[in-house]
């Protein structure tokens, strides 16, 4: 079947199999930041934005994305580097395999929540599993990033 989607601001029209999941489609389009960590919709590694909302690209059929706009980390390089620097300064990326999905969700959170509390941050990000860090360095990075953004604004 034929679908037309916008990936990172660029329009693509492709013939796809009806059971292709968005994750595999995006990797076929060269978006290698999108990773798969499980088959049960549990890990959050495949997080991308669909019309600005964070979704699991492993569970979302490419067919359903027809007509929609998708953003991956490849399309948010500047923001990824900006937040990523805070993560890197904590050593919080570690193996890095969960970083793209995690960062996509952090960036979604920043757009959706205003001045989130620590509890709100943890809850928003709870669908992103990480086996290396124990999450503490990620939280420090998020807090430092939010403080930095607030400083820049004021």
């Amino acid at each position: 079947m034929l679908i037309t989607v916008t990936i990172n601001g660029k329009k693509y029209t492709d013939e796809i199999s009806p059971d292709l999941v968005l994750l595999d489609y995006l990797r076929q389009k060269g978006c290698y930041s999108v990773k798969r960590g499980c088959e049960t919709s549990n890990c959050g590694l495949c997080t991308v934005h669909l019309d600005g909302k964070p979704i699991l690209s492993c569970s979302y059929l490419a067919a359903r994305a027809d007509g929609h706009s998708i953003t991956t980390l490849e399309g948010l390089q500047e923001e990824a580097a900006e937040f990523g620097a805070f993560l890197a300064d904590q050593g919080g990326e570690q193996c890095g395999f969960c970083s793209p999905g995690f960062i996509m969700n952090v960036l979604a959170m920043v757009r959706e929540l205003k001045d989130p509390t620590e509890e709100e941050i943890q809850e928003y990000l709870s669908g992103n599993l990480c086996r290396c860090t124990g999450y503490q360095s990620q939280l420090r990075a998020v807090k430092n990033y939010l403080a930095h953004k607030q400083e820049v604004q004021s």
Binding site: T47, L50, L56, S59, E123, S126, G127
Partner: peptide, 12 residues
């Protein structure tokens, strides 16, 4: 809803 996997899951 809050305990169900994560926000990305709940957006799907």
């Amino acid at each position: 809803t809050r305990h169900i996997v994560g926000i990305q899951f709940r957006n799907c």
